[in-house]
Design a protein around this nucleic acid. Structure first.
Lengths: 348, 348
DNA sequence: AGATTATTCCAAAACGTTTTGGATGTCAAA
DNA sequence: TTTGACATCCAAAACGTTTTGGAATAATCT
């Protein structure tokens, strides 16, 4: 690769002048500049970004560490998030460094290597956990970061985040089922260690309380956010909760798993079993039957994470650094609302 | 952040000795080494990766430039590919630099910035195009790269790649429809500029020829690889090709779009209209009805791209650098094979 | 003319590593 | 007592930039 030194040799000007000419400083003669630019083009000069990074102590790069083995993003989720992040970053000429946690390697090691190793100017965190040690670490390291998802309701959220109001979202979904006549409604939550789990739990409880339906702990299970978890929970419901007619799942993948499991036991989704999900993945519209779900704007979340992070990196943090987006209930067939038998669900 | 210099100040040893102690050289006294390691831990030393990169002229990073605005990856596709890439890269302690092409920015600029800027040790290319200028550039720049998808059949494929045998895949799918009794079968191809388009075209033609069915150019359309394109093609088929009873789509997204369009016109998929796709996205199993499709192992392709690229980067290219993986026909309901009315499709 | 001000250029330092090529001191062998 | 051999350490160079703080020359003003 051509370096400034090569251009210096070729044109006879010093490295300093070459650098300044290309950077557009006005203390270089216009004729000289043209000559240098021509030489740079001829030799196909591209500045060495690594050297720039070292010198400037900035990388023009955003980091994203993705969970992969234990709890991968839902299919269809990462896609959209990454696209939002990539688009917004690209527009500001930032790149995205994606690191998958090496198998057998401690997750924090990845963070320390990337952050301590000065590979990024800022980081995007996904899937907030209780007393998240990653957040504590980043704060101590003074590395700019934004988080997708706030802390659990009983913990302080003293960091910038983008989140959806999933409590209200689940509440709407549950209330919708109640309005359709359901009274025994199951809830499949994410694993307890995930911060947003409690918001979804509360949204469900809120809706029951508003309708005067007693809360039954037997109707609440934790799944693994994957299809298999949703299926397992549904089977458990079927075996232990005879009068149950509807299930709220904390994400679409579990809802799809639950649908399959119920269908496997002879239930007709939207007829003798209602199911709603959360996310509105592209999948869900095409599910069989199409899934009623709580939509969160994943692509947009990706974009806004970057739009929030960049000013923080540049030292101009906006006033609003904690952003809660609304969700939207998308009613399709899996809840039975658009079928003919609306309102006459069997009671327990 | 702590630097070697800080450790030097603290322990009294030179920067050289610190560096060599931590790197495990045997020309440093064991007691000294322990002392240095202890100091490094106390001060939370993390080597500056950027400085390392500059010095070593290696980045331990793989580049991936994703198409985003004009022709984004299918939802569910990038997910899996990225996970395969991330996992395999992580296992070898490589990171992945993902760059989204900035809006209004020429795509080649992204490549030049990343490659010429020395930001990566190697690159993964997706979506080979005809006479792909990216490939020409990378070869000239002597940057290691691997490609997901070979060149079009009439062009030389003189580069390392992983691909699936989509010609055989489409042929199987088409033959399957023929075996079910279909004779007028539509084909929705990818845009003509994509290299693999012609393979899919040929697979379709092969199957027709083997069954003695004449090829009809009116039954072949190009879509945009997105849902909308599949829907548009299906509507066009319905309006212009009265006797058509089946459509082969070049990816699942277009198949889903085609399904919706046909359903919108009153067709019952798997009964009076058969549809098959290509990819086997997670979506497809849950489609309504479940989509018959040609499965390609996307996650595995991601992994193998990395497993092929890394030895090339390290200067030990394997013998086999052009890998063709088999596909698998996944028969579900959208082709009608598993319905009761097998074999009695109306003829044109 | 001499003094000031522009204009145009550049040497050297710095960013944080790793590696090269010794330097220094110690100990055993001659 | 000298000579290697070995153990332990380190100064300096290099990776390719950008920036600092002038230097040299030419143009303009008293």
């Amino acid at each position: 690769m051509t370096r400034l030194k090569d251009l210096s040799l070729k044109t006879g000007f010093s490295i300093t002048t070459i650098s300044r000419a290309l950077a557009g400083y006005d203390d270089v003669n216009e004729q000289t500049r043209q000559q240098i630019i021509r030489a740079a083009q001829e030799m196909g000069y591209q500045p060495n970004e690594v050297a720039r990074q070292l010198r400037a102590q900035r990388t023009q790069t955003i980091g994203l560490i993705i969970p992969t083995h234990d709890q991968p993003f839902s299919e269809g989720f990462f896609d959209q998030l990454m696209r939002g992040i990539g688009d917004a970053a690209g527009e500001s000429r930032f790149d995205v460094l994606v690191s998958a946690r090496a198998a057998g390697d401690d997750e924090m090691e990845s963070y320390k290597r990337i952050v301590g190793g000065n590979r990024v100017d800022g980081l995007i965190l996904a899937r907030t956990r209780h007393h998240d040690e990653r957040i504590a670490y980043l704060r101590k390291a003074k590395m700019p970061f934004v988080v997708s998802g706030r802390a659990a309701p009983d913990e302080a959220t003293d960091f910038p985040f983008i989140d959806v109001d999933s409590q209200a979202g689940i509440q709407h979904a549950t209330a919708h089922l109640i309005a359709l006549g359901h009274t025994r409604i199951g809830l499949v939550l994410p694993p307890p260690e995930i911060a947003y789990t409690e918001f979804r739990h509360r949204g469900y409880a809120d809706a029951l309380a508003a309708a005067g339906i007693p809360y039954d702990a037997g109707l609440v299970l934790h799944g693994d956010l994957m299809r298999s978890g949703g299926a397992a929970c549904m089977r458990h419901f079927i075996e232990t909760q005879a009068g149950l007619t509807a299930v709220v799942c904390s994400n679409d993948l579990m809802a799809l798993g639950a649908m399959q499991a119920a269908q496997g036991r002879g239930y007709r989704i939207g007829h003798d079993m209602a199911i709603v999900g959360f996310d509105d993945l592209p999948i869900s519209e095409h599910a069989n039957p199409p899934l009623t779900t709580v939509r969160q704007p994943i692509y947009d979340i990706g974009r806004r994470l970057v739009e929030l992070l960049l000013p923080i990196i540049l030292g101009r943090p906006p006033q609003e650094t904690q952003i809660l987006l609304p969700t939207q209930l998308i009613v399709r067939e899996s809840c039975g609302a658009s079928s003919s038998r609306k309102g006459d669900w069997p009671s327990a």
